[in-house]
Simulated scan of single mutants.
Amino acid sequence: MTLQELKVQAVQTRKALLSMIYHAKTGHTGGALSSADIMTALFFHVLKLDPSNPFWEERDYFILSKGHCVEGYLAVLAERGFFPPEELETFSRFKSRLIGHPNNKIPGIEMNTGALGHGLSISVGMAIGLKKDRKTNRVFTLMGDGEQAEGSVWEAAMAAGHYKLDNLVAIIDRNHLQISGSTEDVMSLEPLAARWESFGWEVKEIDGNAMDEVVQALTSTPLKPEKPTLIIAHTIKGKGVKAMENVASWHHGVPNKGLYEEAMAAFTRLEEELRNAKL
């Protein structure tokens, strides 16, 4: 997709995930919205994949470590053609395979995730295996910033640096909020970039809600040969819905009818503006 098309698609991703949450009456709204630009760029521009053959041996691998924000993941998989978009209407319903965390019974999902701190460890193992098999596939993982308090993240970070995994790209959705408040109040993370660099990673900080920066960063990996890449994507929790932006309580929440209709109308207007914009 072109940059303009990716911006439009990101709005459609937000519309789809908000609709899922509203109709299911459950979901992790804030983080799904903050990471929608990243998810859109990955699945519509960056990852090497084949929706008609999800287990294609040459594919890039993606692990959603912050698995509670599955709504955006499901939205991009459906739109990309891994399963029919109509199935999104079954999200969190009885007997649906579209549940509140990634489920590897769904095409395009490699691993069941959501116990925070596990995604990077899984990704490091995949990247080591690919190196040993002399394959050129890449591994991408998206983590939350609250997740950085998990010790297993740093064990995996140490291993990735040690094994010089330049086929591994980790992204942190740095929206500065977690379920119980500010990340810096709950467990201070800064200086975050310096900490990752000390573990042997090459680090780049970007505006994770600016599609041009997201695409430029993700298509420039590895940032340095023989080093794993970390992208710290500074985002806004609840991005796109003004009443939700930078509000910790929207980590998990369902909009009422009025807020939902207002948000969807705003997304529709933005979508039209982007379609009509001249680059």
Rank of each mutant, 00 (worst) to 15 (best):
L270E: 05
Q148E: 11
T90G: 07
F91D: 00
P191N: 14
L88G: 13
K7F: 11
K224G: 00
G81E: 06
F199H: 15
G181Q: 10
Q12Y: 03
F82G: 06
H45A: 08
G258Y: 04
F94K: 05
G238W: 01
G161Y: 00
K164A: 04
E184Q: 14
N137A: 09
E213S: 11
E58H: 15
N209E: 09
N137P: 00
Y163V: 01
K48Y: 02
E5P: 06
V8E: 14
F43H: 15
I106C: 08
H101D: 03
V241L: 07
K48W: 03
V215L: 07
F267E: 07
V186D: 07
A194C: 02
R174S: 14
I63F: 12
G144S: 12
G27L: 07
D212T: 07
S188P: 02
F55W: 05
V169E: 12
L74W: 13
V8Y: 15
P225I: 09
F44D: 10
E245Q: 11
A149P: 01
M20G: 09
S92K: 09
G125K: 10
A127N: 14
M20T: 12
A193L: 07
A127D: 11
H162P: 00
R269M: 06
S34A: 12
G27N: 07
V8W: 02
R97N: 06
R80K: 15
P51H: 10
R275D: 02
Q4H: 10
G240R: 01
L279D: 11
S180A: 13
P84I: 10
R134G: 08
Q178W: 11
Q148G: 04
L88Q: 09
E86F: 03
K25G: 02
K48G: 03
N246Q: 12
H176K: 15
A159P: 01
I172G: 08
L168Y: 14
E155M: 04
G67L: 03
R59I: 04
V70Y: 08
P84Y: 01
I231H: 05
A217M: 10
N104S: 07
F62G: 07
A266Y: 02
K15R: 13
V254N: 07
V241H: 09
L274E: 12
E5C: 06
G125I: 13
N112S: 11
N137S: 05
V215M: 04
T235A: 02
T136Y: 02
I232W: 01
E57Y: 04
A210G: 06
Q12G: 03
S52W: 04
C69G: 04
G208M: 00
E190W: 15
P102M: 11
Q178Y: 01
A16Y: 03
I109H: 07
Q4S: 14
T136S: 10
T29E: 09
R80M: 08
A157C: 02
G240S: 10
T268Y: 14
E202P: 00
K15Y: 04
